[in-house]
Amino acid sequence: MDITGTFQYEEDAISAAQGLHAAGIKNVSLMSPIPMHAAEKALGLGKSNVRKFTLIGAILGGLGGFSMCVATALVFIMPTGGRAIIALPPYLLITYETTILIGVLSTLVGFFLVAKLPAWKNRPYRVEANVNRFVVAVESPSSNEVKKAEQIIRGAGALGIEQTGGTL
């Protein structure tokens, strides 16, 4: 069983979420139809860990691309055009491309890991959250938390509160 509260205004939803956090309730999520850039600080979301994935991926991609060129050229020595077997200018181009390729792919992986997606299991969700409402959800609270959570959500000015099973 989960609790969801629907809000019309961004500030109300944020204050509800902050109230729940302050009350020590776990598994609180705040859903919104659009990203809330202004509120990110209030919600304690700083720099995302995705950036580490991007950086590491790009570096590995660059190194991997260059070593792929060198290694594959050394497997079979095929002289072409009087050029060196390990020719830097063309290999740097390949390096450039693989840097970006692996950088993008690892950013994608990073996104999935950090955002904990894909997740198709039952989780609290309200359809309005993707239209024009803000939804604060508490995932499977313990029985003594339920009352407190509902109180906080109502106190913040929720339009409605529902106790639902996971809908998504």
């Binding site: 999520s29 705040l30 859903m31 990203p35 990110e40 995302s48 996104f111 997606l117």
Partner: peptide, 9 residues
Amino acid sequence: RGTSKEWHT
């Protein structure tokens, strides 16, 4: 679901 964490990421 559009949670703030998802948007942020």
